[in-house]
Simulated assay, not measured.
Amino acid sequence: MTKFLLSVHVIAAILAVGPVAVAGSVFPRYLRQATTDPGAITVLRALHRLCRAYALLGIAVPVFGLATALQLGALGDAWLITSIALTAAAAAVLAASILPAQRRALDLTSDPDQLGTSRLPAKLGMSTGIFNLLWATVTVLMIIRPGSTTGA
């Protein structure tokens, strides 16, 4: 059962978090283009939809991660507690910063002048960078966890 839970956890992380990381990262670029290229607005809408949908699917990552940790008896391990805290921080950045800023940016696309003077592309770039850094740190902790029996 542990191998199954771990497999679902890793697959969910790859298939749910990966698209949010990529779509969130390219959103600011298309936001800058939207001031002069109306076609970029269609891309922005698709990227935002992708981020929202995969954020919901991403809930499976900590759910199966916690189930795996419970099976392994690792819930009290410092590396896991740190990973849980970093995962919660990444979720907070996504829910409180990235997704609302993307929504505001889409609202601004109706006014190219206001969009052109907005600091949203920079804010989104920074927020997405923090989100990606948090997830990269969690990934590293999962691979080189202290006390690992994998020999790493």
Rank of each mutant, 00 (worst) to 15 (best):
T2A: 14
F4D: 10
S7Y: 10
H9K: 00
H9E: 00
V10M: 09
A12K: 04
I14D: 01
A16C: 15
A16Q: 02
G18N: 05
P19H: 05
P19F: 04
A21P: 04
A21K: 00
A21F: 01
A23T: 06
A23G: 13
S25K: 13
S25W: 11
F27V: 03
R29F: 07
Y30P: 03
Y30E: 07
R32M: 11
T36V: 14
D37Y: 12
T42W: 03
T42N: 14
R45Y: 10
A46M: 11
H48G: 11
H48C: 14
R49Y: 08
L50M: 14
R52I: 01
A53P: 06
A53Y: 07
A55N: 06
L57R: 03
A60M: 05
V61S: 03
V63H: 06
F64S: 10
G65Y: 04
G73R: 10
A74K: 15
A74G: 09
L75F: 08
L80W: 13
I81K: 14
I81M: 07
A85I: 08
L86Q: 00
T87W: 04
A90D: 01
A92E: 10
L94F: 05
A95S: 07
R103V: 03
R104H: 12
R104L: 13
D111A: 15
D113W: 09
D113H: 08
L115N: 06
G116S: 13
G116M: 15
T117V: 12
S118R: 08
S118I: 04
S118A: 04
L120T: 06
P121M: 00
P121F: 02
G125S: 05
G125P: 02
T128P: 00
T128G: 01
T128C: 02
L134I: 04
T137L: 06
T137G: 02
V138T: 02
V140S: 06
M142F: 04
I144T: 10
I144R: 06
R145S: 06
G147F: 08
T149G: 15
